[in-house]
């Protein structure tokens, strides 16, 4: 399995990164940025499809809620009716899940090409293509950046970890869609705070080159959001969603945060007050009914 993963993804990325490094004047930072751009362009159709799919699911929410209410005691019938409706809970996150291997492969390609240790260098040698002998002449790569950062070592000035934290936070804030479910919304808010801190923490002990990748990925993710916004807006209008769309699933939103919000899922969240208002409007009939019953109940003695 590992060999197939290497063959299909890690090896092509490793070799592409080395070729870009050579083509861009032996600048590893430019090579990372270029490869991040190329990958994002390659998976752009997939990302857009995922977003549109998530919107479709969001558009179906009222019908789904009605069905859930109607068949709350008959899960089999419920799933039948949902199927008839065309609801597929995985359609939103499947394309996103398909992007995961690409991100993991990119990470591995960076670790290999940086070749911080002798072990990394042996591994790099076993994964470069023999039919590209010119790659060997580029090894070991020049890992100094701006004369102060050694991309192969953790950043002792903490500049890159701080930039990772800030860029991840801002990208997540912009790209994680708001949710109609308060629990999901709260979880998202927590993840938006926790994830950047966690990445920043990891960056303290990992090569600075990986930090550069995270920063580039965040910036490219934001750019991608603005580029694809017209397409998504059109799709949103088509599905009659004039308000911020809900994510397909809570996990999709969490995943967006986990992957440094690699793809835009919906427009940026509205200010907190507005979100609350939206939540109130979108609360299901059953919830409102339960709240009404609670209010009418005499207080417990």
């Amino acid at each position: 399995m590992g060999n197939i993963f290497d063959f299909l993804l890690v090896n092509p990325m490793t070799n592409a990164l080395m070729l870009l490094y050579g083509a861009l004047g032996n600048s590893y930072v430019l090579a990372i940025i270029a490869l991040t751009l190329i990958i994002r362009l390659a998976i752009l159709p997939l990302a857009i499809r995922q977003q549109i799919s998530a919107m479709k699911m969001a558009a179906m929410q009222p019908q789904i809620r009605a069905l859930q209410e109607k068949y709350k005691n008959d899960p089999q019938k419920l799933s039948e009716e949902m199927r008839k409706l065309g609801f597929n809970p995985f359609s939103g996150c499947l394309p996103l899940l398909l992007q995961f291997p690409i991100l993991i492969a990119m990470y591995q390609a960076i670790v290999r090409t940086l070749a911080v240790t002798p072990l990394n260098l042996v591994e790099l040698g076993s994964h470069v293509y023999s039919f590209l002998p010119s790659i060997a002449s580029l090894v070991p790569i020049e890992s100094t950046f701006l004369g102060i950062f050694d991309l192969g070592l953790p950043d002792r000035y903490f500049i890159i970890p701080i930039l990772v934290v800030v860029s991840t936070y801002l990208a997540n804030k912009l790209l994680t869609p708001p949710s109609t479910d308060p629990t999901t919304q709260q979880t998202n808010q927590m993840l938006q705070l926790m994830m950047p801190l966690m990445f920043g923490f990891f960056m303290l002990s990992t090569p600075a080159g990986l930090g550069i990748y995270w920063i580039a990925a965040n910036v490219v993710g934001v750019l991608q959001y603005y580029i694809t916004k017209p397409i998504l807006d059109r799709a949103r209008t088509q599905h009659g969603l004039s308000v911020p769309a809900a994510p397909a699933t809570a996990s999709a939103a969490s995943t967006a945060a986990l992957t440094s919000a690699s793809t835009p899922a919906a427009p940026p969240p509205k200010p907190k007050v507005k979100v609350k208002a939206t939540l109130r409007v979108n609360q299901s009939a059953s919830v409102r009914k339960r709240e009404e019953e609670r209010r009418q109940r005499p207080p417990a003695r």
């Binding site: 308060p182 629990t183 979880t187």
Partner: peptide, 12 residues
């Protein structure tokens, strides 16, 4: 709903 969400949030 929000009150109910808090224990779940803590759990997560």
């Amino acid at each position: 709903m929000l009150e109910l969400a808090i224990p779940r949030l803590r759990w997560r």
